[in-house]
Design a protein around this nucleic acid. Structure first.
Length: 708
DNA sequence: GAGTATCGCGCT
DNA sequence: AAAGCGCGATACTC
């Protein structure tokens, strides 16, 4: 089946061809070589780990488009569909290996890393050479714009000489297929869509390349973001190994904890309902769920019921004919928990302490509020509050982490899990991680220790973990030239003690001595300083700071006192305070800031008529300079580090904003430590700073060990 | 049943 | 009225 479509669009000839025949590809291939092209893979879904290729769309110089079909549904005469393979994978590999190995042509794609995964995993083709990614370019040109391909075509239609075309969701689908399944769309519209994507991608590159030059973003794009694609691609492909036995053990342990806590909470919840409401009919609909037990249920003089964990749980029927419903208290429901926590317990809080409220105006039933209640409950603190906290912690650990690990671990690669590191996930230029997110693995407390012990080096390997210390404060010192900060870093002072001394109106040396003497007050003040550094760097307000100290440090002060502490902080770091003022003025005048790589953070809200929206924009801008520059710096280090580690037989596995987790053959561990030191502390963008950064690397068999 | 909004919580 | 994320569960809508 060969289909030619050629039509005129203004003066431009657009040609499309669906190719299902091996020989046709072989004939055309020589005409494709040596020319810039855009490519776009169509796949069964959006997971590069589990989904597979359906076809390859190409745009040769934006003029001729092809859709090379690997697999698609074919309609039979009896209207049934047959999933048909046209050009087999092995053939595709032979046909396309040369094309993707060219070093002298531009290969353009939208979110190229995604396509590269399929090309490698399914066709064994390692994309090398001059890659241009229109998603990244769009993001770097304007981080506030939508950067989906269709959004961009709509946005820039006139610039790239293309009309908007049907969105994916608007394509026709065969019966029984979801809108998200490419194979569920008839071949012609599907291929047309794919080829337009490729064509648009090709044309966008021309426009974006010029934009990058015009806006002075070439360095940021070509030297930082584009090379990062290859670094991240290798990290993602490698994955990180799990101690799967330990995951299962933890699962068992925490399931017991969760179940025990759930039972207590459910009991307390039921009791609350039955005492609050005299009649079952008055208990809100929220608490009645479908009864799925044996029929008919028990019945006594109070009505139908069921026994659960040795307790009588009532059933009811809204009408005589409707199904039984069973009274349920679900600790995972914030609405239900709210009733239990705030109607049942009667804890008096000091007037200066305010609980957090949610959007609906209700008191939130989150960890912070419950801890605050517990703190003020005095002697007879309701045991149920701590049970709720126990349940929350255990269920979070199980559902978000343990379950996911068991589901995703790859038995063919030492039970590794694969994540995606996204370069377009943030507006500041940090990376984000998804599917699963490996940047929010617990790190504190028992759960943190257990969670990170699960991440291990493969056999005969070691994990080498490098960590910048005080990265954001150091970058702040660079930008602000704050004397206190610069001196403190130069003299290797303890920043938390320094800030703590400002709060306590003490001399640095005195607090240091107190801390070193082991006096609990020294420790407490250092902890306070630590909280302060974290909270105040970007200008947390007095209210929030007060709450924050209460929750984090159990420190009870008035809003006025909180304000005094903030003033003390701002006075101590006067240079930083002045710098923030200068940035504020700049943002309100210009509506943007730049990071150390020259990347922009645009803040249109700086011109908003409402004061607090402008203030938010200013805080975001100050944050973006610091956070974004940190992001740039660690990426720059990774670009140097990655090939160096590779030469040792190692690789970078994870990046967690100021931390790199790497893996090397065990005999190379000490060499890797030196490499990490070299690249994190003195390679690339870090050299632009007026003070050194300090990153230290250490070796271990697990993520936890290597940091301990 | 699928999709969406909200809440809540893990990380730096 | 710190910033920046991703994700899971529930409640609700279509």
């Amino acid at each position: 089946m060969v289909l030619y479509l050629t039509f005129k669009k203004e003066a431009l000839i657009v040609s499309q061809e669906i190719i299902t025949d091996v020989n046709r590809v072989a004939d055309l291939m020589p005409t494709w070589m040596g020319k810039d092209f855009a490519f776009d893979l169509e796949t069964t879904g959006i997971s590069w780990v589990t989904d597979s290729i359906l076809g390859i769309a190409l745009s040769i110089e934006g003029e001729r488009q092809y859709y090379v079909v690997h697999r698609h549904n074919v309609e039979q005469s009896d209207d049934t569909l047959v999933d048909t393979t046209f050009i087999p994978k092995l053939t595709l590999r032979h046909l396309f290996l040369g094309l993707f190995s060219q070093s002298d042509v531009k290969m353009i794609a939208h979110n190229s890393k995604f396509d590269m995964h399929f090309l490698l995993r399914e066709l064994g083709i390692h994309v090398q050479g001059m890659l241009f990614d229109t998603l990244l370019a769009s993001k770097i040109i304007d981080e506030n714009k939508e950067n989906g391909l269709k959004d961009l075509v709509e946005l820039y239609a006139s610039k790239i000489d293309m009309d908007a075309y049907a969105k994916y969701q608007d394509l026709p689908t065969y019966k029984g297929y979801k809108k998200t399944e490419f194979i569920g769309t008839p071949l012609e519209p599907a291929a047309d869509y794919a080829m337009k994507d490729a064509e648009a991608t090709y044309k966008l590159e021309k426009f974006f390349a010029k934009q990058l030059a015009d806006k002075g973003l070439q360095e940021a794009y070509y030297d930082l973001w584009q090379p990062m694609i290859f670094v991240l691609f290798e990290m993602e492909t490698k994955g990180i190994a799990l101690n799967i036995k330990m995951v299962h053990d933890l699962m068992e342990k925490y399931q017991v904890i969760e179940q025990n806590a759930a039972l207590e909470v459910r009991k307390a919840g039921m009791e609350m309902l039955l005492t609050t409401y005299k009649r079952l009919e008055d208990i809100p609909h929220l608490y009645w769920s479908m009864y799925r037990g044996v029929m008919p249920p028990f019945e006594d003089e109070h009505g139908p019921y069921v026994m659960e964990d040795g307790f009588r749980v009532p059933l009811m029927r809204p009408t005589e004919r409707s199904a039984y419903r069973v009274l349920t208290f679900n600790p995972g429901s914030s609405a239900q928990l709210n009733d239990l926590v705030f109607k049942q317990t009667n804890i008096k809080l000091p007037p200066l302490v305010r609980l957090k409220t949610n959007k609906a105006g209700q008191y939130a039933v989150d960890k912070d509020n419950i801890e605050t209640l517990l703190y003020y409950a005095g002697e007879d603190r309701p045991r149920i509050l701590s049970e709720i906290l126990t349940w929350k912690k255990a269920s979070k650990f199980i559902s978000t982490y343990l379950k996911r690990f068991i589901k995703d671990a790859d038995p063919n690669n030492f039970y590794s899990i694969y994540t995606s590191f996204n370069q377009d996930g943030t507006n500041t230029g940090r990376l984000s991680s998804s599917g699963p997110n490996l940047q929010n693995i617990p790190s504190r407390g028992d759960v943190g220790q257990e969670a990170r012990q699960v991440f291990i080096a493969r056999p005969q390997h070691k994990l080498v973990v490098g960590d910048y210390s005080q990265m954001e404060l150091r970058v702040m010192a660079h930008y602000s030239k704050d004397e206190q900060l610069l001196a403190a870093f130069a003299e290797n002072k303890d920043l938390h003690i320094l800030t703590g001394s400002a709060f306590a109106q003490m001399e640095y040396e005195d607090l240091l001595a107190l801390y070193k003497s082991g006096d609990p007050r020294g420790k407490e003040l250092r902890q306070l300083g630590k909280t302060g550094n974290f909270a105040l760097m970007y200008g947390m307000g007095a209210r929030k700071f007060q709450r924050y100290l209460l929750v984090n440090n159990g420190y009870e002060i008035t809003v006025e006192e909180a304000q005094q502490w903030i003033d003390a902080f701002n006075a101590m770091y006067a240079g930083a305070t002045a710098w923030k003022e200068r940035v504020r003025t700049f943002i309100l005048k210009n509506g943007y800031v730049k990071t150390i790589s020259g990347r922009y953070r645009n803040l249109p809200d700086a011109f908003h008529r409402e004061r607090w929206i402008r203030d938010t924009a200013v805080r975001q801008g100050i944050n973006a300079v610091i956070q974004g520059s940190c992001g740039d710096i660690i990426c720059s280090a990774m670009i140097g580090l990655q090939p160096a580690l590779k030469a040792l037989g190692g690789s970078i596995l994870l990046q967690v904003h100021d931390e790199l987790v790497t893996e090397v053959p065990e005999e190379q561990a000490q060499v890797a430590v030196v490499l990490m030191d070299t690249f994190m502390n003195s390679y690339g963008l870090v050299n632009k700073l007026s003070l050194p950064l300090v990153a230290e690397a250490s070796v271990g068999d697990s993520w936890h060990d290597a940091k301990g």
